[in-house]
Every structure is written in structure tokens, then in C-alpha cells.
Amino acid sequence: MIKRLLMSFLLIPMLLLAACAQGSSGGDGSSSGGGDKVVTLGFTGPLSGPAASYGEKTLRGIEMAIEEINGNGGFEVNGETYTLKIESLDDQYLPNEAAANAQRLVQESQTPIIFSPHSGGIMAMQVFNEQDEFIIAGYSSEPAITEQGNSLTVRIPPRYDGYLEPFTEYSMERFGTKLASIPTVTQYGQDWANALLPHWEAAGGEVVHESSVDFSKDTDFFTILTNALESNPDVLFIGGPSEPTAKLAQQARELGFGGGFIIMDQAKLDEMKLVVGDSYELLEGSIGTMPLIHSEFPGTPQFVEKYREKYNEDPGSEAGYHYVSVYIFVEAMKAAGNVEDAKEIYAHIQDGLDNLPEDKQVYVIEEIDENGGFVMTVRVAAVENGEIIEITAD
């Protein structure tokens, strides 16, 4: 009995010390080791499975921006200095997991902004993000995510329907009018197909085959491609994460397909090149989005150099768009005079765009439209004679 009492008296000061330590570093706007307050950003995306590389590259852009901002002493809002941190959770590209992750991030980390790089996850979060008051920073060119009337959603990349006309015109003129469609089975892939195929037919083309591929399950595309090629298409519409899309294109060439590829904007030509042999030979005649390393925006050269130095590879648009978005949101917080209120931050995103330093403009985003979409010029690229060339989009 005496021994237990002694132990209790010894534990009391220890518990008091622990409580004091917790009180000095926890809660909203918690202090870091340097005395600065911390704003936690959230991320939910595929960090395992076949789309893991895609998810990791989006996260890298966020992490690079945070490292730079914190390394430069953070940022000031209303006389207070803040630094940033990122809480990242794996959702394996599953919408229900993205929604669960978002709820956890809001409850445990009070994140005012959550990044998500897939339309399924974005739409799953839109069910409750206004009620829970957090901004969805959506990396998806799906127009529907900003046509839902959600007042706290930002669409980061351009709408994909801006690609339909240049993709169709180029492919028809170079290869012919018969199209076989084999996009990813995800909702995003199906939405892309539902937009492209009617446009192709309206332009005088013929859709000779329709199917889809589940990159989370399929690794050998022989049967899918054999069925598609039996219809003798001039062009294949394919897309999904870069790595499996590249393997699909490679197997199509191995089966004797000599036509063109329309590449859905999720897959990137420069990343696909690395998968099929570090040259564009197998991707001849492909049309897709302009690779970041071939872009000429004010902040692009510096970003590419820093990324190469850090990761020993070229950056893709996923990293670039997320990098610049972090800086835009920081400028919005500064203009809003608030780091916690999602509505106030959202209301000042245009200020964030207007105040963005030129050397951080990895992409030049002109404005945020009334629905929450970033507006910028669509840039299109094709592979001709083993080289990337720019295709002018009207």
C-alpha cells in the first residue's frame, strides 16, 4: 500500500510536465520547434497499387513547395509566422477510401485544404466537404467536378474537353477515321470516352471498337488488344496512369498495330517514353498533353532543375501543378488574413493567383472561374519522327 502511494506521488509531477509540454505544442496553429505556427495540408491519393507512381509524383510537388516555403522561414499572416506540413494517406485510387481519409484528416489534423488526384475521390469528398468546411484541391480535368455547384472545390488542371478537337483533327488527318477505344475502366476513363467518341463521330469518324481496361487487375493486354485490332482501327484511344498505359501501347505495337494513339491526359508522353525504352519510337503518332519539361512558363526551368537534383528524374505535370498550387493557396491565406477558415481562403484564391511570384509560375494560370476551375491555355503535343512537337489548339 505504501509502495503504491509513493509511486502515485512520483507520477504526479511527471504527468504535469507532460501536460504542459502537450499544451505548448498541440491544437490548431501548433508551434514548431522554431516557435512558428503550423498549417497542416491533407493529401489522399494512390500510394500503393498500379497507380502508386502517379500518386507519389503528385505528392512530391506538394512536398517540394512545403520544403521551400519552410526553408525560407515560412510565411506571414496577420503578423504571425506559419510553416506548413503535409499529412498524406493512401486511398489506393478508391473513392470510398478517399472519403474516409478526408474525414480522418479533418478530424485529426484540422486540414483546411485536402489534395486529391482522382475524380472519384474528389466526388466522394464533395458529399460532405462543404459541411465539414475544407477545400478540395482536385487534380482532375473532369469538368463535372466543378459543375456540381460545390462552393469549396478547386479544379487544378484544365478541362479535358479542350483536348477533343486538336486530338481528333490531328489523328484523323495523319492516320484515318476508324477509332478503337480502350480507356481505363475508372469513372474518369469512362467520362473521357463518353466525351471523345461522340466528338469523333461528329467529325466524320467511325468508332469501330469499344472496351476498357482495369489497370488494377490487368497486366497482360493481349486479349483486349487482339479484340480491338480485329476491327482494323487507324487510331487507338488509350489512357490511365502513365506506366500501364505505356505497356498497353507497347503490346499494341508488338501485335502489329502501326496507327496512332490518342493519349488521355492522365498519362504523360515523357513518362510513357521511359517505360517503353527511353525513346519515342514506339509512341510515334501519339498525341497527348505537352510534357512539362518541354513547356516554357516563367518558373518551369528552375522547378525542373530542382526536381532533377532531388529525384534524379524529370518532373511531370502532376508534380508541377501541385507545386504551384501550394504557393497559390499560401498567397490566398495571406490575402485572406486567415489560415483556418476554408471559405475565407477560397474567397481569396484569385488574389493568390494575382500575387504568385513569377519564379513560382511553373504553369501560368490566368484566373479561377466562377465554378472553381483554374483557367489556362491548353497545350498539346504529338510525337513525330521520334521528337515532341507542339500542336496548336484552337
Rank of each mutant, 00 (worst) to 15 (best):
G277P: 07
K273H: 02
L248C: 01
S295F: 00
A249K: 04
E243T: 13
F261I: 07
L274R: 14
E271K: 09
F257C: 07
K273D: 01
I287T: 03
D234Q: 13
D278E: 14
Y280L: 15
V276L: 02
G239L: 03
P241S: 09
P298K: 14
S295D: 10
P241R: 04
L282K: 14
L248Y: 06
G277R: 03
G259P: 06
M264C: 09
E296Q: 14
D270G: 04
S279T: 15
L255H: 11
F237M: 14
F297Y: 15
A246Q: 02
E284R: 09
L283F: 00
L248P: 06
A267Y: 01
K247N: 10
G260N: 11
F237K: 05
S295E: 14
E271D: 13
L292P: 11
I262V: 15
T289M: 12
M264D: 11
I263V: 15
V235R: 06
F297C: 05
D278M: 05
S286V: 08
L292G: 10
T289E: 12
L283W: 03
L269W: 03
L283N: 02
V276P: 03
F261G: 08
M272Q: 02
S279N: 15
L248S: 07
A252K: 04
I263Q: 04
T245E: 04
E271H: 08
A252L: 09
I293S: 12
V276C: 03
M272E: 03
P233N: 12
S231E: 15
V276A: 00
I263F: 03
D234C: 13
I293N: 07
I263L: 14
F297W: 13
G285W: 05
F297L: 03
E271T: 07
P298I: 11
M272V: 05
I293E: 08
P291R: 08
F257N: 05
T289P: 00
Y280I: 08
F261W: 12
A267N: 07
M290I: 01
L282T: 03
Y280C: 06
S295I: 00
M272N: 06
E243Y: 05
L282W: 01
A267E: 09
I293P: 04
Y280T: 07
G260Y: 06
L236D: 08
K247E: 12
E281H: 02
D278Q: 14
M272R: 00
Q251P: 07
E271Q: 12
E296L: 11
T245Q: 10
L292N: 10
N232K: 14
L248F: 10
L292R: 11
M290F: 05
L292Y: 08
P244M: 13
L274T: 13
L282S: 02
K273M: 15
Y280N: 01
K247R: 15
I263G: 03
M264V: 13
G239A: 07
G285L: 12
